[in-house]
C-alpha cells in the first residue's frame, strides 16, 4: 500500500497545503523553517495530536465528545494536587493516575451514552460543565502553580530523548497505538463499520453499545494523559486551563477529513489536521501577524474543509439504467 492510498487524495492535498504554508512562512521568516523551530511546532502540537485521534475514534461512531478539555483540566488539577500532597510520588505512577482518572471520567460519558442511550452531544455538554465545576470544588478555588509541584513532576515534559521532547515521544507512542488499534484490530475496524452503516454492522454481528463504551473510555484516557502533560508543561493548574480546547480538537478533526456523519477518517488525515492548526498558531507571530487571526483562520478552514468533503461525497446515485451502469464502470471489459 503506497502512502497515497493510506492518505487518500484529500489527505495529500492537505499535506501539500501544510507544506506550502510552511514554505510561505519560511520565505518571509527563514527562522521558521529551521529544524529546531519546526520541532518546536510539533512539540507544541503534541497534545492536540493525541486529542484529535481520540476524538476521531468517537466521531467515527457518529458520536462527539465535548467534555475532553474539561476532563483534561480536571485530571490535570487532580494530579497537580496529588503531586503537591505527595511530592515524592514517582512519575510513572502520576501518569498512570492521570490515565485512570481520565478513563473513569470518560466511562461516565460512555455509561450514559452506551448504557442509558442518551445523545452524546447533550451528555458531554453536561459533563463538560460538571467537570469544570469540580476542578473549582476539589481545589477550593485555588490555583496550583509550579511552586506547588514537585521537580520531577515538572521535569518530565522538558525531558529530551534522541533530540525529541518527551511530549513528542508520548504523542508518537499514542499515535502508533491508535494506528494499530484502528488499522489492525477487529474493534478498530468495527468503528468504521458502525459509523459507516449501523444496520449493516448489526448484520455483521458488531455490537454498537460495546463500541461506544470503548471510544468514550479511550477519549477519556487520552484526555487524562494530556491533563498531566498540560499541567506539568505549563506549570499551572486552575479551572480554566484548555478552555474551549474541545472545539480546537473538533476543528482539527474536520480539517483532517473526519466526517461528522461517522465512518470516515484516517490517522494520518487527523494528524495533518492537527498539524495544520499547529503550524498556523506557531507561524502567525513569526510573520508578525497578530495571533488573534488564529481563530478566524481556523473557522474559515473548517468551513472550507467541510464544503470540500461534502462535495466530494455527493456524487453518483443509484444506478439503474444499463447505459449509466456501463458508464459508471469506467470501461472495464
Amino acid at each position: 500500500m503506497s502512502t497515497g492510498d493510506a492518505l487518500g487524495r484529500r489527505g495529500l492535498v492537505l499535506a501539500a497545503i501544510v507544506v506550502a504554508l510552511i514554505v510561505l512562512v519560511g520565505l518571509r521568516a527563514p527562522v521558521f523553517v529551521t529544524p529546531s523551530s519546526l520541532l518546536g511546532v510539533v512539540t507544541d502540537t503534541s497534545m492536540l495530536f493525541m486529542m484529535v485521534l481520540a476524538q476521531m475514534a468517537v466521531i467515527l461512531t457518529r458520536g462527539i465528545d465535548l467534555s475532553v478539555a474539561a476532563n483534561l483540566a480536571l485530571t490535570g488539577m487532580i494530579v497537580a494536587l496529588v503531586s503537591r500532597a505527595m511530592p515524592g510520588i514517582p512519575i510513572p505512577l502520576v501518569i498512570l493516575l492521570a490515565v485512570v482518572t481520565g478513563l473513569a471520567l470518560g466511562l461516565v460519558n460512555g455509561a450514559l451514552i452506551a448504557g442509558v442511550g442518551l445523545p452524546p452531544i447533550v451528555v458531554t455538554l453536561g459533563t463538560l460543565s460538571i467537570y469544570r465545576g469540580l476542578i473549582f470544588v476539589i481545589a477550593g478555588g485555588q490555583w496550583v502553580t509550579s511552586q506547588g509541584m514537585s521537580e520531577a513532576f515538572l521535569a518530565f515534559p522538558k525531558l529530551t530523548v534522541l533530540g525529541l521532547s518527551s511530549l513528542v515521544w508520548v504523542a508518537l507512542v499514542v499515535s502508533a497505538g491508535f494506528w494499530l488499534f484502528l488499522a489492525r484490530t477487529t474493534a478498530g475496524r468495527g468503528l468504521y463499520a458502525v459509523g459507516g452503516n449501523p444496520v449493516a454492522a448489526r448484520f455483521c454481528g458488531i455490537d454498537l453499545t460495546r463500541q461506544q463504551l470503548l471510544v468514550y473510555a479511550l477519549s477519556g484516557a487520552v484526555s487524562g494523559l494530556c491533563g498531566y502533560l498540560w499541567v506539568s508543561r505549563y506549570g499551572i493548574a486552575y479551572s480554566d486551563i484548555a478552555l474551549g480546547f474541545e472545539l480546537t480538537v473538533i476543528a482539527a478533526c474536520v480539517i483532517g477529513g473526519v466526517s461528522i456523519g461517522g465512518g470516515v477518517g484516517s490517522v494520518p488525515g487527523a494528524l495533518l489536521g492537527a498539524l495544520f492548526l499547529g503550524v498556523v498558531v506557531n507561524a502567525l507571530p513569526v510573520v508578525n501577524v497578530s495571533p488573534f487571526w488564529q481563530m478566524a483562520i481556523s473557522g474559515a478552514v473548517i468551513l472550507a474543509a467541510v464544503i470540500v468533503n461534502t462535495r466530494s461525497e455527493q456524487r453518483g446515485g443509484k444506478l439503474i439504467l444499463p447505459e449509466a451502469r456501463r458508464a459508471g464502470r469506467g470501461g472495464s471489459p
Binding site: 472545539l247 473538533i250 476543528a251 474536520v254 481563530m295 473557522g299 474559515a300 468551513l303 467541510v306
Partner: peptide
C-alpha cells in the same frame, strides 16, 4: 457549519 462560523465570527 456553526462550529466553523463560531470560530470565524469570534475570530
Amino acid at each position: 457549519v456553526t462550529i466553523g462560523t463560531m470560530s470565524l465570527f469570534r475570530g
